[in-house]
Amino acid sequence: MKQKITNTTDIYKGIFDIVRCVPKGRVTTYGAVAKAMGLKSGARMVGRAMGFVNGEKPAVPVQRVVNSSGHLSGDNGTREKKLAAEGIQVKNGKIVDFKKLFWDPVTEIEL
């Protein structure tokens, strides 16, 4: 049985580890990461964690995490450029072919 994580630092570490698993050219959502972590209604916590990725080693590909409809949030210009470098198209702030590019950590990695 999984041990429930209650320490914010440990929760953020788990979130970062999941986001690092998102393959280049794919995207996931804040809610999918939260679900993989076992965080009920934790999408906001995942979003908050993404604000603390600077200086993390290895780097956390925050650009690969979007909202549940495929829209970018935060610094869209920088994120859009990073996604484009990975071959992901963004139109009007939304991932083109979002459903096709969606990566679900619950089914893709063993937690």
Rank of each mutant, 00 (worst) to 15 (best):
L83Q: 01
N76A: 12
E86C: 09
M50V: 10
V90N: 04
P61A: 05
L83D: 03
E80S: 13
V65F: 04
S41G: 12
N92D: 15
G74Y: 02
K82L: 14
N67C: 05
S73D: 07
V62C: 04
E80Q: 15
G74M: 08
N54D: 12
N92T: 07
A85W: 01
G51T: 10
A84V: 10
V46F: 08
Q63H: 15
E86F: 01
G87P: 00
E80I: 08
V66N: 00
R64I: 10
G47T: 08
E56I: 10
I88F: 03
V90G: 02
G74F: 01
S41N: 13
R79K: 15
G55S: 12
P61E: 02
N92H: 07
P58A: 05
L72C: 04
M50I: 10
G51F: 00
Q63K: 03
T78A: 11
P58H: 02
V46W: 04
P61G: 04
V66L: 10
V66R: 00
V46A: 05
R64T: 10
H71C: 14
K91Y: 07
V60K: 00
G87E: 05
S68N: 13
V53P: 00
S73V: 13
A85M: 11
E56N: 07
K91T: 11
L72F: 04
S69N: 11
G70T: 08
G74A: 08
R64N: 06
G47E: 13
G87W: 03
K82I: 13
G47C: 07
E80F: 03
V53R: 00
D75E: 12
A43F: 06
